[in-house]
């Protein structure tokens, strides 16, 4: 069964889901490369966890409007709004405390609020909340064709945008002062990068889930950095690793009942990292 899925013989839908997950993995790998070079990796974790209350609120809003609450674009919109609020909160708090403390505080508070909301929703008996918790760890089993297309094209769009912006993004990460003198606005570039990472998080909600998306952003990037001496090289290798992990993770998860997709993808990425360490790991890194 696993071999069938890996070779795209598990049916049209399963193949589409695997390809979609591969494109998501590529976008996460590429975005993660720029994110880690800019030293903002944990910011993406706070952002991802901050999507949860938005998903709960969007569900409630859609049920109130007469739906079953499971319309994916609606859930993504809610997720985007609270993720943006979380990001804003981190930046606002970072004026009073260190950024890592602000990140931790926001991550935990928003996630806690989200869990409370989801628990309330389960007991509400309204709409169709069963399976809403797959946004935590991801599940590609039984994914619809439309969802797979959203994931695939979303991932592709983010990858293209990163390719187009790679020069200014690299300049800001390496030397923000010089970038500014060259007419590149570091604030705008940071905002663009965060928006692209947010897109990865939203698209990845159903695949890796919000808890583990940070691993798909960071792990391929740190592996890739040991294979390349340039920014474009790092981002490309990272995208390749992410794509492979997304593809195989989705295929394996789809063929083993009840195995969430996120952990499988993340374990594959960790495997690549360990392999990289064994081959390329020297004291000077």
């Amino acid at each position: 069964m696993i071999w069938q899925a890996l070779l795209l013989q598990g049916g049209y839908n399963a193949a589409l889901v695997s390809i979609g997950a591969a494109l998501l993995g590529a976008s996460a790998g590429a975005a993660g490369a720029f994110l880690t070079l800019r030293r903002r990796a944990l910011m993406s974790d706070a952002m991802a966890h901050a999507t949860l209350p938005g998903i709960g609120l969007a569900f409630l809003a859609m049920v109130a409007l007469g739906g079953d609450g499971r319309f994916l674009p609606g859930l993504m919109l809610g997720a985007a709004l609270t993720a943006a609020a979380g990001l804003w909160a981190v930046q606002r708090l970072a004026r009073q405390m260190h950024e890592d403390a602000a990140t931790g505080a926001v991550l935990a508070s928003f996630y806690g609020a989200g869990i409370v909301l989801l628990t309330l929703i389960q007991g509400l008996g309204a709409g169709r909340p069963a399976g809403l918790e797959t946004v935590l760890l991801g599940s590609t089993a039984g994914m619809l064709r439309a969802d797979a297309l959203v994931i695939g094209f979303g991932g592709l769009a983010v990858t293209c945008a990163l390719w187009a912006l790679s020069r200014p993004l690299a300049m800001v990460a390496f030397d923000p002062l010089h970038a500014r003198m060259m007419g590149v606005n570091p604030r705008q570039m940071d905002a663009a990068l965060m928006a692209l990472v947010l897109a990865v998080v939203l698209v990845g909600l159903n695949v890796t889930g919000l808890i583990l998306i940070v691993a798909l952003l960071v792990t391929p990037a740190v592996s890739a950095r040991m294979w390349s001496t340039t920014v474009t090289g790092t981002a490309s290798v990272s995208a390749l690793i992410g794509a492979a992990c997304g593809y195989f993770g989705a295929a394996i998860s789809a063929s083993v009942p009840d195995l969430p997709t996120g952990p499988v993808i993340v374990l594959l990425a960790a495997g690549v990292f360990v392999l990289t360490l064994l081959i390329r790991g020297r004291a000077d890194g």
Binding site: L37, A170, A173, F174, D175, R225, S228, T229, T230, V231, G233, T234, G285
Partner: peptide, 8 residues
């Protein structure tokens, strides 16, 4: 400057 940055 971050001298470990992957840049030639």
């Amino acid at each position: 400057v971050d001298w470990s940055f992957p840049v030639r």
